[in-house]
Amino acid sequence: EEDDHMEFCRVCKDGGELLCCDACPSSYHLHCLNPPLPEIPNGEWLCPRCTCP
């Protein structure tokens, strides 16, 4: 299965362990989110761009 998510964080543009949005190709480091997440959430996760009205 091919993964179309970005291979770098949308905020800092660095690679590493990234959290991928379930609705778009964006990826983020947990510490780059505002507010930062302490751990990878269970289940579906939507990035700030997808949850913003």
Results as ranks from 00 to 15, higher is better:
residue 41 P to M: 05
residue 36 P to C: 09
residue 8 F to H: 07
residue 40 I to D: 03
residue 17 E to V: 06
residue 21 C to D: 01
residue 53 P to V: 02
residue 43 G to E: 11
residue 1 E to T: 02
residue 21 C to H: 01
residue 31 H to L: 05
residue 37 L to H: 15
residue 36 P to G: 07
residue 47 C to G: 03
residue 36 P to D: 09
residue 28 Y to E: 01
residue 13 K to S: 05
residue 18 L to P: 00
residue 41 P to W: 04
residue 29 H to N: 00
residue 38 P to G: 08
residue 11 V to L: 08
residue 42 N to I: 04
residue 45 W to K: 03
residue 43 G to P: 10
residue 50 C to T: 01
residue 45 W to Y: 05
residue 24 C to Y: 02
residue 39 E to C: 04
residue 1 E to D: 03
residue 22 D to Y: 09
residue 50 C to D: 04
residue 53 P to A: 09
residue 27 S to R: 10
residue 8 F to W: 04
residue 48 P to A: 05
residue 48 P to Y: 07
residue 2 E to T: 12
residue 12 C to Q: 00
residue 53 P to K: 04
residue 24 C to S: 01
residue 2 E to F: 15
residue 21 C to Y: 00
residue 5 H to R: 09
residue 12 C to E: 03
residue 22 D to N: 14
residue 14 D to K: 08
residue 39 E to Y: 04
residue 10 R to H: 10
residue 34 N to S: 14
residue 35 P to Q: 08
residue 17 E to P: 05
residue 52 C to G: 12
residue 16 G to P: 01
residue 45 W to D: 01
residue 49 R to I: 05
residue 8 F to P: 05
residue 32 C to Q: 01
residue 17 E to W: 03
residue 32 C to H: 04
residue 49 R to K: 14
residue 49 R to V: 12
residue 44 E to I: 07
residue 5 H to P: 05
residue 25 P to C: 14
residue 3 D to C: 01
residue 35 P to S: 06
residue 2 E to M: 02
residue 13 K to P: 00
residue 8 F to I: 04
residue 51 T to A: 09
residue 19 L to S: 03
residue 16 G to S: 11
residue 21 C to E: 00
residue 6 M to L: 08
residue 49 R to L: 08
residue 11 V to F: 08
residue 11 V to C: 05
residue 37 L to S: 12
residue 19 L to D: 04
residue 32 C to D: 03
residue 23 A to L: 13
residue 39 E to H: 14
residue 13 K to D: 11
residue 39 E to A: 11
residue 12 C to L: 00
residue 49 R to C: 12
residue 23 A to T: 13
residue 20 C to P: 15
residue 5 H to Y: 09
residue 39 E to K: 08
residue 16 G to D: 11
residue 13 K to E: 15
residue 37 L to Y: 08
residue 27 S to G: 07
residue 52 C to P: 14
residue 34 N to M: 06
residue 47 C to A: 03
residue 2 E to W: 04
residue 13 K to Y: 04
residue 29 H to T: 00
residue 10 R to G: 10
residue 27 S to W: 07
residue 10 R to C: 05
residue 31 H to F: 15
residue 9 C to S: 01
residue 32 C to K: 02
residue 45 W to G: 03
residue 43 G to C: 08
residue 2 E to C: 04
residue 14 D to Q: 06
residue 31 H to M: 09
residue 25 P to L: 07
residue 22 D to S: 12
residue 15 G to L: 07
residue 41 P to T: 11
residue 15 G to D: 14
residue 27 S to I: 04
residue 36 P to Y: 01
residue 46 L to E: 10
residue 27 S to Y: 10
residue 51 T to C: 14
residue 14 D to Y: 03
residue 11 V to E: 15
residue 4 D to P: 12
residue 14 D to T: 07
residue 7 E to M: 04
residue 25 P to V: 12
residue 12 C to I: 02
residue 37 L to I: 11
residue 40 I to R: 08
residue 17 E to T: 12
residue 16 G to Q: 02
residue 33 L to A: 07
residue 16 G to C: 07
residue 6 M to A: 13
residue 51 T to Y: 07
residue 7 E to I: 08
residue 9 C to P: 00
residue 48 P to G: 06
residue 25 P to Y: 12
residue 35 P to F: 05
residue 43 G to L: 07
residue 3 D to V: 14
residue 19 L to I: 15
residue 29 H to I: 00
residue 22 D to T: 12
residue 11 V to G: 13
residue 10 R to S: 09
residue 53 P to R: 02
residue 9 C to K: 04
residue 35 P to L: 04
residue 47 C to S: 02
residue 1 E to I: 15
residue 6 M to V: 09
residue 5 H to Q: 10
residue 51 T to V: 09
residue 2 E to K: 07
residue 28 Y to V: 04
residue 47 C to I: 11
residue 43 G to Y: 07
residue 2 E to Y: 04
residue 34 N to K: 13
residue 37 L to K: 06
residue 41 P to H: 11
residue 14 D to H: 10
residue 10 R to D: 08
residue 22 D to R: 13
residue 51 T to M: 05
residue 12 C to R: 01
residue 14 D to L: 07
residue 4 D to L: 14
residue 30 L to D: 11
residue 42 N to D: 10
residue 25 P to H: 12
residue 15 G to C: 03
residue 19 L to A: 12
residue 21 C to A: 01
residue 24 C to H: 14
residue 43 G to F: 15
residue 17 E to G: 07
residue 33 L to M: 06
residue 36 P to M: 10
residue 29 H to E: 01
residue 37 L to P: 08
residue 13 K to L: 06
residue 42 N to T: 12
residue 12 C to F: 01
residue 38 P to A: 15
residue 13 K to H: 05
residue 38 P to C: 02
residue 27 S to D: 05
residue 40 I to Y: 09
residue 29 H to K: 00
residue 25 P to D: 14
residue 9 C to M: 00
residue 37 L to E: 10
residue 16 G to W: 00
residue 40 I to K: 08
residue 44 E to F: 04
residue 37 L to T: 11
residue 31 H to Y: 03
residue 18 L to G: 02
residue 30 L to A: 13
residue 5 H to K: 12
residue 23 A to D: 09
residue 20 C to R: 05
residue 24 C to T: 03
residue 38 P to D: 06
residue 4 D to M: 15
residue 20 C to V: 11
residue 6 M to N: 14
residue 36 P to V: 13
residue 15 G to E: 06
residue 51 T to G: 10
residue 9 C to F: 01
residue 30 L to Q: 12
residue 30 L to I: 11
residue 41 P to G: 13
residue 17 E to R: 06
residue 30 L to N: 10
residue 32 C to W: 00
residue 16 G to E: 15
residue 6 M to R: 10
residue 2 E to S: 09
residue 39 E to D: 06
residue 44 E to K: 14
residue 52 C to F: 07
residue 51 T to L: 10
residue 46 L to F: 14
residue 47 C to N: 05
residue 8 F to M: 08
residue 7 E to V: 13
residue 46 L to K: 13
residue 52 C to I: 05
residue 27 S to N: 12
residue 7 E to F: 06
residue 15 G to M: 07
residue 49 R to M: 12
residue 4 D to I: 15
residue 31 H to S: 09
residue 18 L to M: 11
residue 33 L to G: 03
residue 15 G to I: 08
residue 23 A to M: 04
residue 52 C to Y: 05
residue 22 D to Q: 14
residue 9 C to G: 02
residue 14 D to S: 07
residue 33 L to V: 10
residue 27 S to L: 10
residue 22 D to H: 11
residue 33 L to P: 03
residue 46 L to G: 03
residue 19 L to E: 04
residue 35 P to E: 12
residue 12 C to H: 01
residue 7 E to H: 05
residue 14 D to M: 10
residue 21 C to T: 00
residue 16 G to Y: 06
residue 9 C to V: 00
residue 51 T to E: 10
residue 28 Y to I: 03
residue 36 P to I: 14
residue 40 I to S: 10
residue 32 C to Y: 01
residue 48 P to C: 12
residue 2 E to Q: 06
residue 25 P to K: 13
residue 17 E to Y: 05
residue 36 P to E: 06
residue 30 L to V: 12
residue 52 C to R: 10
residue 36 P to W: 06
residue 18 L to E: 01
residue 29 H to V: 00
residue 23 A to K: 14
residue 39 E to W: 02
residue 39 E to F: 06
residue 5 H to I: 11
residue 4 D to R: 13
residue 45 W to T: 01
residue 37 L to R: 11
residue 48 P to R: 07
residue 16 G to R: 03
residue 2 E to G: 08
residue 45 W to P: 03
residue 46 L to P: 03
residue 22 D to E: 13
residue 9 C to D: 02
residue 6 M to Q: 06
residue 3 D to Q: 14
residue 27 S to K: 05
residue 33 L to C: 08
residue 46 L to Q: 09
residue 46 L to D: 02
residue 51 T to S: 09
residue 33 L to T: 06
residue 47 C to Y: 00
residue 3 D to S: 15
residue 11 V to Y: 10
residue 6 M to W: 07
residue 38 P to L: 15
residue 49 R to N: 12
residue 51 T to F: 07
residue 30 L to F: 09
residue 30 L to Y: 11
residue 13 K to T: 05
residue 15 G to N: 04
residue 44 E to N: 09
residue 13 K to M: 07
residue 27 S to T: 09
residue 13 K to N: 13
residue 24 C to F: 00
residue 43 G to W: 05
residue 3 D to T: 15
residue 2 E to H: 05
residue 15 G to S: 11
residue 36 P to Q: 14
residue 40 I to E: 08
residue 26 S to C: 08
residue 43 G to M: 04
residue 50 C to I: 01
residue 11 V to T: 10
residue 25 P to F: 08
residue 8 F to C: 05
residue 13 K to C: 12
residue 28 Y to C: 02
residue 8 F to E: 08
